[in-house]
Design a protein around this nucleic acid. Structure first.
Lengths: 327, 327
DNA sequence: AGTGATTATGTTAGTGCTTACATAATTACT
DNA sequence: AGTAATTATGTAAGCACTAACATAATCACT
């Protein structure tokens, strides 16, 4: 499912969906068993059943709803004949909710159904159900203790001020090379065999032939990578450039590109080219800004199925480059 | 929190609450960062951003919403200037949603915020967040594969046809006496040494001194137990009453209680008391309904640390009892 | 006793979603 | 080609809840 791939970002949506699912399931069961009750009534009725007559506010805070919600639900339950509402003689502001005899009768016949729901949930969800419950409880507690918004904003401040570093390859980063590339390649194209090889063993396929591998790091996280491959003496290919989708737009791509070009110059390379795909508009624009020039046709003897764009680096003069940097 | 105590039964409510919490948190963050976006828009916008122009139906099924929801949300996004809607020339039924330039600009500036949300969520929730995510994914999968309603109804059918029996102690049941008591004692209190002794050897500590031990059995499962201990000639204590959590609400507790009281009468006992804890509201109410009366203070020379409630059985007259049974 | 703050609840308008229905375009089949 | 089924979407009404406000009772304090 697409939403799952968004992990924390779509937690709200997924929890809502699961919540609706459970409400719906409970209602189906109630209907099938001819119980005169709806799933949304459960918290209020159960609370009153266990704790006896209570005020609107008590119920609301116990079941974690607003007083309005309880008040409106109480209206509905009164209409359904499950509740009586009366003023507290000791405190005229309070409205005391009391279960009617009908409600007591309905509820006491419901033990079997509730038990079935509990057991059915355990049976259907297995140990995952327990894990969900315990994780849920832990999260509720954590959120109550520490406001998540503050934590996020603190992260945001930290990230905003965190320096974007471009660092050369180290063995511990090998895994990121695969992860970052596979992530987007799989989405947009196929992962070709030649990719898999190179991504799995950069030391052999990138460094050993005289290439360079750079990574972009932001506040501890490795968010992008780019390789400079030596095809033949003095002839280099810019390749495997990518930035984690969640970190696009931070300029990491541009810095990686500049880093690789700088390496190319440092080695006194004669030619620098790249192959890409015409669909990747944003990337192509960036290549052009960095000094690459579109070539007609594709490069002879390309390794890639997906390549339909061929560009060569044509370093502009100093004055022109200055202008390009600005934009 | 009260809802937590309902475990599986209030899953829907709790998930909804957590969902709303996350939506609200995301919106606060967006506002604080001046992002021109709302949390509810996220799944649609993000999907379009990653997958390019898509039809209403595609988006809906990808993000797990109804087509109506997406259609309405699309209206709103069009009004907000984030989306364009146009007919698919190849298939006139389809309405293709495309991000506007404004949306693309907004979204590409959002990488930092999304990253902060992910990292903030991880920081605030710790490992529980991961557990929640994995349990969530597992539950989504389980529910898709096996409809939970059927499982519940099967449980219900099985339970409905099984008779609830109250049976006296037999040696094969000794293990259940320990299991049932230890289960809830450990959750709510400590297992005291006096408990361990009695639970391990009911023949010696319950039956030999002239007491009785009853069990509730539903279908093949032993789901509850209750002991009548003879403290001194004619003076009895009701003790060790408990019902398996997954079988609460079936009336097993009440039947055990009635069974023990009947035994007390059969033996012509003079006094029947119990000790309990004020936290156990449901149990206390049941004791009261059965004829126990709350005593001030605790019983002199109580064996238990946890006892802070002392009740004595004061059998009502026959006519009053009849009335009480009804309610 | 009188004043202002607080508390408990009810009420209204609005949001995000659902279900049920309506409509138009496409496909399947004779 | 012509009809019926299917598909893709839009629309209306309704539900559960919220936020914001209104109201009345109570409390705290002089």
């Amino acid at each position: 499912m697409y939403l799952s791939s968004l992990a924390e970002l779509a937690l709200g949506s997924r929890l809502k969906a699961l919540s609706d699912h459970f409400y719906g399931a409970a209602d189906e069961v109630y209907r099938a068993c001819n119980a005169q009750i709806e799933s949304r009534w459960f918290p209020v009725l159960r609370y009153l059943w266990e704790n006896g007559p209570s005020t609107v506010g008590d119920v609301a805070s116990a079941i974690g709803q607003t007083h309005s919600a309880v008040s409106q639900l109480a209206d509905k339950l009164v209409r359904a004949g499950m509740l009586r509402r009366k003023r507290d003689p000791a405190d005229g502001r309070r409205s005391v909710l009391t279960l009617t005899d009908k409600a007591n009768r309905s509820l006491s016949g419901l033990g079997l159904i509730w038990c079935s729901i509990r057991r059915g949930a355990v049976a259907a969800l297995g140990s995952e159900g327990e894990k969900l419950l315990s994780a849920l409880a832990a999260c509720e507690k954590a959120l109550q203790e520490r406001p998540i918004v503050d934590t996020i904003l603190a992260e945001h401040a930290a990230l905003s001020s965190a320096p974007l570093e471009i660092v050369p390859y180290e063995p511990v980063l090998a895994g990121h090379f695969y992860r970052l590339n596979a992530q987007w390649l799989q989405r947009h194209f196929q992962l070709e065999e030649i990719d898999r090889q190179m991504l799995s063993d950069p030391e052999r396929y990138v460094l050993a032939p005289g290439g360079v591998l750079l990574f972009a790091r932001l506040g501890g996280e490795v968010i992008g990578t780019c390789a400079l491959l030596q095809e033949s003496p003095g002839v280099y290919e810019l390749s495997k450039m990518c930035v984690d989708e969640t970190f696009r737009g931070l300029g990491a791509g541009r810095q990686l590109l500049d880093g690789v070009i700088a390496e190319f110059h440092r080695r006194g390379g004669k030619e620098l080219f790249l192959e890409s795909n015409s669909r990747l508009k944003t990337a192509l624009r960036m290549y052009e800004q960095a000094g690459f020039v579109m070539q007609p046709g594709t490069r002879a003897g390309s390794h890639y199925e997906r390549a339909d764009v061929y560009m060569i680096y044509a370093p502009p003069t100093a004055s022109v480059r200055k202008k390009a940097r600005k934009s």
